[in-house]
Design a protein around this nucleic acid. Sequence first.
DNA 1: CTGTGTGCAAACACTTTGCAGGTGT
DNA 2: ACACCTGCAAAGTGTTTGCACACAG
Lengths: 143, 143
Amino acid sequence: MKPEQILKNFQLKITNARIKVLELFQRHQFALSQPFLEKNLEGIDRVTLYRTLNTFKDMGVIHKVLDDTYTLKYALCSDLCYSKNSHHEHKHIHFQCVQCNKTTCLDINIPAINLPEGYLATEYHFFIKGICKNCNDSSYPNT
Amino acid sequence: MKPEQILKNFQLKITNARIKVLELFQRHQFALSQPFLEKNLEGIDRVTLYRTLNTFKDMGVIHKVLDDTYTLKYALCSDLCYSKNSHHEHKHIHFQCVQCNKTTCLDINIPAINLPEGYLATEYHFFIKGICKNCNDSSYPNT
DNA sequence: CTGTGTGCAAACACTTTGCAGGTGT
DNA sequence: ACACCTGCAAAGTGTTTGCACACAG
């Protein structure tokens, strides 16, 4: 979908910065951080990027992706973000590759957990560190 | 166990800073961050704390606890950190309370996940956000 | 005595806030 | 026209590095 259309769907004003940010998300299948955006989108202010990401997150255009780099990352919401009852939520597992340093969304749901009596859950975050398919494949070149 | 004994067990030099840090960990059942240690341990340099935490983590005295605050947290390793085959690893779930802002270790193992072909896992991080037992109990006082 | 631990200064990286001016609708 | 978006400056917070001195073993 065209960035302009996405913005329209979410009733967000169509601005240069937002289009550029969405395009960048669409060009990459992995989660993006503000520093990454800043490097790859010269001409757009650092603060604007932070605010754009925040707005997108609040409106449900993107969702937080946590890994252990302690830099906020986000990924475009997709089918993965909708459960069977068409309720927008984020219960899939993320994968952080220690080789290419990319964190991606896996098409695997977070398994249900029985919390001890008295606990109330609102959000689940599950990520796995390791070597992703791409890096794994390229380290064993075809013979 | 006495902090001195712990240090001895891990073949670490017994210093004032390390004892103080271990004592603080023992006094709290939740994960501690460097900023927290800094506030609660006046007289010990900020950098020393970072380095102490790093050393402890490398030696397996403490383990990383991730939540979405983007501040590194650590917890003392305990029985939870040893799997059935007495192999030191960290596969339990953490819980981040949005009310008291404490992140704790749960006595629940991370369920096994079947990764897609080609992926290789080395670490699992799973945390749940919500309201912990303590906060939940205190918001519904006994009648 | 020797190597490791500590403290201080400084730099680095990521994120947030305030305000003035610009722009989409 | 008006509200919202953007850019700039500055500050806040968490973390790392370099170097000289101190101290545990």
